[in-house]
Design a protein around this nucleic acid. Structure first.
Lengths: 156, 156
DNA sequence: CTCAATGCAAAGTATTTGCACGCTC
DNA sequence: GAGCGTGCAAATACTTTGCATTGAG
């Protein structure tokens, strides 16, 4: 599986095993905690190094969702997809559009670039967060109204 | 120009002036050096803070080109565009596709997201770097050939 | 037995924050 | 004059690196 001059160790087995099972976009730290639950002696560094190796080997992909950290997803599930990220709750939707891919390849060809990879993220507000936002706006505006009523004269 | 409770200072004037003139994607540090050339007393922190303000005010956009740092571009030139980045030399091509935008909006609508922004980057190898890479490959293969010829027997 | 892998601590990098002072408004 | 803006140093957050030890091949 990862034979390319690489050694197989108990740590790597465990990390890869845990990692490939996940559906989420794990940060190195997330994975560290998950793995540590099964082997408390594991070190952060090993996780970082293993994720890097997996990425280089094409088994994992780096994903940046907007918080500072690098997240990873296993490549064994879907071949490629992009992400739509809710800026309210962080929820992500994965999507793939062959049509977009085609357009991107066209753009690359136009400028004589050999496309290797792309990163496409849509940032927006999901339905739930929109609803929540509207509710909050209602509450706030009613509060403001009260304030105006109570202190309008005092303010002047 | 930046009246929204913000004060106008000599530092901000200078930073904004230098920044809006540039065509490049400047990192905070890049801009720091450029500004420092004209006012050696300026501090890094002020650059960070001003770029953040400009971004919040919609006058600048953050761009991540793949090296660790956050880069910025003025918004006064082109309304919106995406980037294609050469992984060899870092050269970038800016492009915009209304068709892609349309597709993205469709995807967002499909999942009931209200799209706010997107980030689209194509990573690839530009024509120059491809040429250079090929030339290097030729040299290396000829070197290898020599080695084989000279040491083939010794190696066995 | 050799050299890659590990874990710890320390170092790096990029950015942010606390704070005293100075300058706009 | 009040409070935002500035510059410095220190703090933070994430990731990488140096090094001695362990373990796989």
């Amino acid at each position: 599986m990862q034979r390319a001059g690489l050694k197989r160790t108990a740590q790597r087995d465990l990390i890869v095993d845990v990692f490939l099972r996940t559906e989420d976009h794990l940060s190195s730290e997330d994975l560290y905690h998950l793995v540590k639950a099964q082997d408390p002696t594991i070190g952060q560094t090993t996780i970082y190094r293993t994720l890097k190796l997996l990425t280089e080997a094409g088994l994992a992909s780096e994903v940046r969702l907007g918080d500072g950290r690098t997240r990873y997803e296993p490549n064994n599930k879907f071949p490629h997809h992009d992400h739509m990220i809710c800026t309210g709750c962080g929820r992500t939707v994965e999507f793939f559009s062959a049509e977009i891919k085609r357009l991107l390849d066209g753009i690359a060809a136009e400028h004589e670039y050999e496309p290797k990879q792309h990163s496409l993220r849509i940032f927006g507000v999901c339905a739930d967060c929109r609803r929540e936002r509207n509710e909050r706006a209602e509450i706030e505006s009613s509060v403001e109204t009260h304030v105006h009523l109570d202190y309008a004269r005092a303010a002047k």
